[in-house]
C-alpha cells in the first residue's frame, strides 16, 4: 500500500484518519485526477505539493502564541503589532506569505471575537488551518448576532460593562486577537507566557490559561 504519511502525526498529536483504506469517493477521484493532470501539465510537481503540505503543517497556534507573548513583554513590538500585524509577525521570522493581518486587542473594557460569515477566512498562514467549529454554519451565523451567547458556549462569560467587538473577515484582511495578559504573570519570560496563549484566545472564543496551571520553570544551573 502506498502510504507516504504513516509516520506523521497531526498538530494535535493524533494520527491522521486512515483515509487510504476507506472506499474511494467521487471527490477523492477528482482530487487524484486534478493532481495528476496538474503535474503532467507542469503546473506543479509531487514534491511541491508535499512541500506545501509540510509548510501548512508547520503552521500552528504556537506561532501566534509566540507573537502574543512578545507583544506582552516588548512595548515596541506591541506597538508594531497593532500598527501592522503582518510586518510584525514576519519580523519574528514567520513565513506568513501574502497574509494581511490586523491585531485587535482585548482590554478591561473590550473583548474582540473573529468570524467570517461569508466563508471561513482565518489567519491560516500564522495559526494553521482553522478548527472545524470555526467553519460551521452555526458559528458563522450566530456570532454576528448573539456573540455573548456564542462566547458563553465556549465558557467565556463577560461582564456587562465589557463591550464585545465582532470582526467579520469579509474581504482582504485577517484578524488575530491579542488577549489581555493574565494577572499574576509579572516577571514571566515570553517563552513561559506563550504557554498561556491558546488558539481560541487568539480567535476571541477563549481566554488565556490560568497562570496557576503552568508549572514553574526548573531552576537553572
Amino acid at each position: 500500500m502506498p502510504h507516504d504519511h504513516h509516520d506523521h502525526l497531526s498538530p494535535s498529536g493524533h494520527p491522521y484518519r486512515p483515509d487510504d483504506d476507506h472506499p474511494l469517493t467521487y471527490w477523492q477521484q477528482m482530487e487524484i485526477a486534478i493532481r495528476e493532470i496538474l503535474i503532467e501539465k507542469g503546473v506543479t510537481t509531487a514534491a511541491e505539493i508535499n512541500a506545501q503540505i509540510d509548510t501548512m503543517d508547520a503552521r500552528s497556534p504556537a506561532n501566534g502564541a509566540t507573537v502574543i507573548a512578545r507583544a506582552w513583554t516588548d512595548p515596541a513590538f506591541h506597538a508594531a503589532l497593532l500598527d501592522d500585524a503582518s510586518a510584525a509577525s514576519a519580523s519574528m521570522g514567520f513565513d506568513i506569505g501574502p497574509l494581511k493581518l490586523i491585531a485587535v486587542e482585548n482590554t478591561q473594557d473590550v473583548h474582540n471575537v473573529i468570524v467570517c460569515t461569508l466563508c471561513s477566512c482565518y489567519p491560516r498562514n500564522l495559526l494553521g488551518l482553522p478548527p472545524d467549529w470555526y467553519k460551521s454554519r452555526a458559528y458563522r451565523s450566530r456570532t454576528v448576532k448573539e456573540p455573548r451567547k456564542v462566547l458563553a458556549e465556549f465558557g467565556v462569560t463577560l461582564p456587562d460593562h465589557v463591550t464585545v467587538r465582532v470582526h467579520d473577515s469579509t474581504a482582504d484582511m485577517r484578524y488575530i486577537v491579542v488577549p489581555a495578559r493574565p494577572d499574576g504573570t509579572d516577571n514571566w519570560s515570553a517563552d513561559r507566557l506563550a504557554k498561556l496563549v491558546t488558539r481560541d484566545s487568539m480567535i476571541g472564543t477563549g481566554l488565556p490559561k490560568d497562570p496557576g496551571t503552568i508549572a514553574q520553570p526548573l531552576p537553572s544551573g
Partner: peptide
C-alpha cells in the same frame, strides 16, 4: 448566513486527512 438562527456550535474536531491536505 450571518444572523441566521442556528443551533449550538459543534465541538467535534477531526484531524485533516491526507487527501484533504
Amino acid at each position: 448566513m450571518g444572523g441566521d438562527a442556528a443551533g449550538p456550535i459543534p465541538t467535534e474536531q477531526h484531524d485533516f486527512s491526507l487527501w484533504e491536505k
